[in-house]
Design a protein around this nucleic acid. Sequence first.
DNA 1: CGTCCTATTGACCTCACTCAAGAATAGTGG
DNA 2: CCACTATTCTTGAGTGAGGTCAATAGGACG
Lengths: 280, 280
Amino acid sequence: MLDTIDPIFLPTTLRTPPAAQDVQPAQCPHASPFERWFGQGERAHWSASVAAPVACRVARQAALLREGACARNVYVVQAGDFKVSRMAEDGYEQVLDFAVAGEVLGLEGLAGGRTLATVEALQDSLVYAIPIHDLRGLRAANPLFDERLQQSLSAQWGRMRDLAWLTGAVGSDRRTARFLLLMARRMAERGMSASRLHLTMRRRDIASYLGLAHESVSRSMTALAAAGLLKVLGREVQIIDMEGLRLLASSTRGHGGEAGAATLAAPRSPRHSATGSYAH
Amino acid sequence: MLDTIDPIFLPTTLRTPPAAQDVQPAQCPHASPFERWFGQGERAHWSASVAAPVACRVARQAALLREGACARNVYVVQAGDFKVSRMAEDGYEQVLDFAVAGEVLGLEGLAGGRTLATVEALQDSLVYAIPIHDLRGLRAANPLFDERLQQSLSAQWGRMRDLAWLTGAVGSDRRTARFLLLMARRMAERGMSASRLHLTMRRRDIASYLGLAHESVSRSMTALAAAGLLKVLGREVQIIDMEGLRLLASSTRGHGGEAGAATLAAPRSPRHSATGSYAH
DNA sequence: CGTCCTATTGACCTCACTCAAGAATAGTGG
DNA sequence: CCACTATTCTTGAGTGAGGTCAATAGGACG
């Protein structure tokens, strides 16, 4: 009976002490990712020929999947978050997505047998590994899992929609605002605070994801903070004016947001930096 | 027996007379999309409870799927091509993809029951409609179809990869070059000439897809033509120097392509326009 | 304590967006 | 078939935004 697996979050050598909402899946309105995927109690039975998913710890900066490798497993993220990237032909690292708890990784390698992206842990994380050759049997044995898998495949479309929504916005401030709103939405979907973001990835990763220079991301952050929409302290971001951020992000192109009220101050003047410790 | 369906291409009021390679699926190294999806001859049998897919003609500019509508069918494109777009909150039309023969449309609506994108025919096209409630039965009855469906779901990941590859490039010329290479690759995958592109979509659609202004797309086209890489004549594009185009597109950012040789002439000087009939 | 990585800020300047106008094409109706 | 219209495409001019280069500071880690 695998339902006795305790979803212990890994307190081993965590650089950044985990925030309270991260280690308490019980606080989420939904059950833990494991239960949502495989069911709980007596419903989480496995067929005799199929092994139960194996819990794996992934250290920060460790590669869960490496581009071009042989695809062996898919992974369900139990805790932590990941960066999905791909190497362009000239060595540029193109970030495709950021995956958080509840998502499944490695499905892209199903067809070709080869991993098509590198997936790297942004913090010490916990995943459940499912061998690809067990997928069919697991789907047959566990209807809930089959349903979740279907949803994940169609959720892939949502990722593309998000990416297009982000890169479709003209203006680095707008684009950065959309990114923050997207991250906030993902937090909210998991029952955590939407206004308090952690941003485990580097500015450079965000920049690659948004199609900007990392300096522009940095500048936009401070600009949004100077406009009173955010408080930025390194990778810690607190959204002050969610509605203002939405208004700014709502217009995809052209000058001014909607009614011309949400435009940031044109003569970028961060005299009084609201960036916390970075003030000087 | 549905294998007797003749994939007649519609010669009804075609503005642009279809090129020979478009109406001759027999010339492709692969079979027709219908055969590739459903098999041919005796293998294309259907279970008694599941109707065979229905061929549907879609007129140019007609909406095959409309965003927000109730999801009833998925469609396999037999001939023609489509624009997949989504309306942003401010009314901006964000183009997400261009679909060509062999691809499946409407899968994104499977989970939520609602269509998440508008799919519009760029030319008079032919699709096979499959009711969603028949999907399960059809997959069970036809293993080939099941396999293709799996591949299409994982192919969705490739679309996102393509989109990120496009928007990741800095510089409108590079981005346009990548777009043309992408279209050429899709043509080649279907056994057609990779150097001769039709571009059934408007410049504005390309621009939305690439995250550019449509004027920039137009300018980049003429710039690429002036550099001797292309011949542009409205929506008809012929790639002259495929390798040069690849070299230009290979570098995602920074000045110059790879060895500094593939940069376009800096003082954009289209004295002698190579745009065909647009010369004056 | 020294090194490496990351983040921020500044200066400069190219480039692409915006606005605007003209030309070519497609579509419609007489 | 041609006139008329609407849409699409191209080109120009100007400017502001963001990319590149560069320097500094902060933080992590051994």
